[in-house]
Amino acid sequence: MSLAAVAARRAMRARAEIATTLSAGRTALTVLRSSPPLTLRQTGPVTVHLVSTAAGPLGGDELELDLRVAPGTTLEVGSIASTLVLPGEGPSSMTVTAHVGAGASLRFAPEPTVLADGCDHRMAVRLSLDGDARVWWREEVVMGRYGEAGGRCVTRFDATAGGRPLLRQELELGTGPCSPAVLGGARCVGSVLTTRPCDTAVADGAVADGAVADGAVADGVVVMPLAGPGTLVQALAADAVELRERLDWGLAQVPPS
């Protein structure tokens, strides 16, 4: 899309959705509703990719993606390219809501979100997992395109498992001076949440005794077994390539569930 076209387009409200159902023992994608600029393409039996059909999100855009993974089914969501968040009229937002039913599995692995100079963005994830649901959820944020400092962004992640809080995190980017307690000089921050079935959850005291459950740490990446049934791999890096390498290293340390 040309720059002139970006400047001309108005703020958009969009709500796209994907839902699965169990049909004769197999996953069927029964709802696949695009809503420009969020366009969805089925790229495999249980795989959907997000394809941007307009620039942005731009300031003023309010985008929502709803995922409903029925009990016993599988869904994989990716994106064709990274998402570039641009400034515009007011703040922009992207909210992803996902419900994963009992025994179902969701892999959410989009490409990074890049915060262009001047943007004011809000990213929210609301993830609810029923008993023994599995999730693999990646989030990567890059401050600015090459040579840019990057705009503002607040990310909020809320995950519950079996009705109990599993992970709640909020991160403010570009809203104040860099702190050596928060990001230091890193330009990229990312995480992958993986879960194990609820019934294998162990108390913190028991975790402390097990070498595997103790997590792992290396340059710019940490693998953290949560108090609930999951593990968070969190990384900081200078660029998107290094960020992905660090997350992949961390994931290799997570024992298979």
Partner: peptide, 18 residues
Amino acid sequence: LPAASAPLLDLLAERHRR
């Protein structure tokens, strides 16, 4: 009830424990 996280504090805590 905020949930503000600090990735570097996590990293520092895990490294320090080791």
